[in-house]
Amino acid sequence: MSKLYVARNPRVAARSLDGEMMIMSGRDSTLFTLNKTATILWQAADGATSLDEIVKLRICSEFDVEPAEALQDAENLARELASREILEVSEEPIPHRNPAGASR
């Protein structure tokens, strides 16, 4: 399996409140709320760290889960969020861009 890289879409607005990440699409105003693990993925999605590294370093180290299962679920989530233009997914590192809607 080739490596996947994920990056937060700078065109969304995001805020964390009491550990709950809320994200609003600048395209259609849809509001998303991420749970704890999805929030970890979102916060680690810097475009430079591969998805398997994120899962290994940030997920498997904290949760009792099989790495392969966690990676598959993480990839499914990343692609779902990418389809909603919340995340960007690429097989190459994603260059850093100005985070106009960066999370706070």
Binding site: T30, L31, F32, N35, T37, A38, D73, N76, L77, E80
Partner: peptide, 11 residues
Amino acid sequence: MWLWAYTVFAR
């Protein structure tokens, strides 16, 4: 899906 979840509230 394991643990991962998000909700769409959406003159």
